[in-house]
Structures are given as C-alpha cells and as structure tokens.
C-alpha cells in the first residue's frame, strides 16, 4: 500500500441528531472554554432533519498543506493528522479557503490555524467520539467505509429479495 489509510472522525448522518455537543466538547478539550467558533468539528444542520458533523478528513495530498504559503502545515506520517507549526503560521487563511470541508478553524485570539488532531493529547482518543450521545461519531478510514457501504447495499438487496 502506497498511501497509508488514515483514520478520521466520521459522522453517520442517520444517527446525528444535531445536538452540537461535539462542538462544545472539542472547544472545552482544546481551550478549556465552550465556544463552537473554536471547535474543530462543526455540525451543519440544513433545517430541519438534514444534519451531520464535519471535521478534518485527512485528505490524501491535503490541499491545505499545499496551499500554505509559509510551509506551516505538514502531515504527521503515522496518524495522518495535519500539524500546524505555530511559529510559522500567521493566520493568513489560505488553508481555510483550500479546505473543501470547512474543517479548519482560524483562532481569532492566537491568529493561527487549528485542525482536528484526533485529540493527540488524550489517551482515549477523540473526545467528540466519546461524548457523542448517539454514537454517530466514530473513527474510520475510507477503506472501512467502503466495506461498510458494500455490506449495507448487499443487505438491502437481499432484504428486497426476501420480502414478499
């Protein structure tokens, strides 16, 4: 395998109820305050029942890393998380624009970019996953997601065949 399969936080939109606890948890964990503007995971709710949570997807050839004019962003090879070098980052926001998922936070106080690091500082991993009441959030890789999708579609196919 040339490209390691990095895990990222995924949200099952069928399970997400739009409570936004993940946003509060993220900001509290990272900054000790409750502030969704500082959360590296955000819930998008297209009223009233369409909703999901979005955080860094650990893209291959991450556009944010490529876009950064100061080489402040790099990928941690083992985990795939995007590291921000605070000494280089000047908060220009190119990475924010480059991200297709709106997953990068520009901290208004420190003027640096902040990206989901899977709670590298926590022994039990991403806190949003632990706090999510509906287990809508989980850690997964694109390959695992593909497998799940294939299983689901076959299950549905057989359900239809077996239902009179």
């Amino acid at each position: 395998m040339t490209q390691p399969a990095y895990q990222h936080v995924i949200c099952d939109p069928d399970l997400c109820t739009g409570c936004r606890l993940c946003e509060y948890v993220c900001s509290a964990n990272k900054h000790g305050v409750f502030d969704p503007n500082l959360a590296r995971i955000r819930v998008v709710r297209i009223e009233p029942v369409t909703m999901t949570a979005i955080s860094c997807r650990m893209c291959a050839d991450a556009p944010c890393v490529i876009a950064c004019p100061r080489d402040a962003l790099s990928r941690a090879p083992e985990t795939g998380v995007i590291l921000v070098d605070d000494t280089k980052c000047d908060g220009c926001g190119w990475c924010v624009e480059a991200c297709d998922f709106g997953a990068i936070v520009l901290n208004p106080a420190s003027k640096t970019a902040e990206i989901c690091d899977l709670c590298a500082d926590q022994e039990d991993g991403p806190q949003c996953v632990i706090y999510c009441p509906k287990e809508a959030l989980s850690l997964s890789t694109p390959e695992v997601l593909r497998q799940k999708a294939r299983r689901d579609v076959v299950k549905r196919l057989f359900e239809e065949l077996l239902t009179p």
Binding site: T17, G18, C19, R20, L21, Y24, K134
Partner: peptide, 17 residues
C-alpha cells in the same frame, strides 16, 4: 417517521420528525 432530532446540547433527541 424519518428521524429523531435534538434541541441544542440534548443527548435524548425526543423530537420525532
């Protein structure tokens, strides 16, 4: 029913859409 949804910060999600 399509899904149940939450108020802000709610872990229960009683609202049946």
């Amino acid at each position: 029913r399509v899904k149940s949804v939450s108020c802000s910060s709610c872990s229960i999600a009683c609202e049946q859409w």
